[in-house]
Design a protein around this nucleic acid. Structure first.
Length: 99
DNA sequence: CGTGAGCGG
């Protein structure tokens, strides 16, 4: 189950997300999306859990809770392909020049 | 590189 965590504190990182979802079940992967430009946190992240019930429980328990003095929003993540991709061919990088 | 929207590689 892919879990989307929004409104995270900038102090929260990958291992921090792992520690949050750890007691709820087996955390397959924990990733806080850091800004590509600044390298700092963007304020949201993704957590993948192997167990369906554990992930649902984690969402229900952690949604609306306060972490690092910031109220986080935990919801089910949408498929990655939903966001508009500028790359039409994966693995084939083309020039990013704007028309 | 702006730190506040909320969906990454």
């Amino acid at each position: 189950m892919n879990i989307y965590i929004a409104n995270l504190s900038f102090d929260v990182h990958d291992d921090d997300l792992r520690n949050i979802f750890a007691p709820y079940g087996e955390v397959t992967s924990a990733k806080v999306i850091t800004d590509k430009a600044t390298g700092r946190s963007r304020g949201f992240g993704f957590v993948e859990m192997a167990d369906e019930a554990a992930s649902t429980k984690a969402i229900a328990e952690l949604n609306g809770t306060t972490v690092e003095n910031r109220t986080i929003g935990v919801t089910v993540a949408k498929p990655k392909g939903d966001r508009p991709s500028r790359d039409f061919n994966s693995g084939k990088s083309y020039n990013e020049n704007r028309y």
